[in-house]
């Protein structure tokens, strides 16, 4: 048997294409720009007060003392709980209400549907800073200042979430919903049992955006709360900076701890975003 001539080029003679090299270089630079502050945050959290201005990335004598101090401080744990509770509640509320309204706008024909959708969208054009005063006045009159509800109510349902969910529900084929209707389900059960599982990627995206947005929210929680027990983590951490001399190592430790839930949320939910389940039930 004779050997067939190989059609493959030797590895060192492959064409070097500039496209991927440029793309990787740009991505690398972008990644470094974003990661560097985070690395310094972790690095500073491992330094003592005297080493903070020593800008070496790897501390000369790394220590976990700051973590022990922050975790041992009851206020931090309280703020951590406040942030978790608020971010989770608002996320669940958004997933429920934004989906319900988005589904109704996407799948039901009724008079004024378009107008309602436009009205909801138009609220996206108003900056938060303009809304803070009416929110504050409303909270003040209704006795919501310095309450969890006061912090949460502006974000319990968002125009962005409604818009996102409506767009996704529009991609759910009506056949699924009609099949369920013929099977005798009521409209709420159709939404909950059939439509919602088909937009899991959208729900995950909405949950991540909402959780992160509320976890890092600073402006409104700062305005609506005066009692330190109700501070959220960002507001609490900023108070570290102003109450005495600025303790950078403590602030960085708190910030480092604050990133953990956001990373967890992303790691848990990202796979649902990638997984497109919906088309599997349709024609092959």
């Amino acid at each position: 048997m004779t050997a067939m001539p190989s059609t493959e080029l030797p590895a060192n003679r492959r064409d070097i294409r500039p496209g991927p090299i440029i793309a990787w270089t740009v991505l690398l630079i972008g990644g470094l720009i974003m990661v560097t502050p985070l690395l310094f945050m972790f690095s500073t959290s491992l330094k003592t007060a005297g080493q903070v201005y020593d800008l070496r990335l790897i501390p000369a004598a790394p220590t976990f003392d700051n973590y022990l101090k922050v975790l041992g401080d009851g206020r931090f744990m309280q703020w951590f709980f406040n942030s978790t509770f608020i971010a989770l509640t608002v996320t669940v509320s958004n997933v429920f209400f934004d989906s319900l309204v988005g589904y109704t706008l996407a799948k039901f024909e009724f008079r004024g549907r378009y107008f309602i959708f436009l009205a909801i969208l138009s609220t996206l054009m108003i900056p938060t800073e303009m809304l803070v005063i009416p929110w504050y006045l409303m909270s003040s009159q209704l006795g919501w200042l310095d309450t969890y509800w006061g912090i949460m109510f502006p974000g319990m349902m968002t125009a962005f979430g409604t818009f996102l969910m409506k767009q996704f529900f529009e991609t759910v084929p009506n056949d699924f919903l009609e099949a369920a209707r013929v099977d005798g389900l009521n409209e709420f059960t159709i939404w909950w049992k059939i439509a919602m599982p088909m937009v899991v990627p959208a729900i995950s995206a909405l949950a991540i955006f909402t959780f992160l947005g509320n976890w890092t929210a600073f402006f409104w929680p700062l305005i609506v709360t005066t009692s330190k027990e109700l501070y959220t983590l960002p507001v609490g951490l900023s108070s570290f900076a102003v109450e005495q001399s600025i303790k950078w190592e403590m602030i960085m430790t708190g910030a480092a701890l604050a990133t953990i839930p956001t990373l967890l949320v992303f790691l848990v939910l990202q796979r649902f975003i990638v997984r497109g389940v919906m088309l599997a039930g349709l024609k092959g």
Binding site: A179, R181, V182, M198, G281
Partner: peptide, 20 residues
Amino acid sequence: REPKQRNIAMVFQNYAIYPH
């Protein structure tokens, strides 16, 4: 009458079987 009250069953062009 609503579909469920008519006691009929329907098979759709796209099958409409639930992927989850």
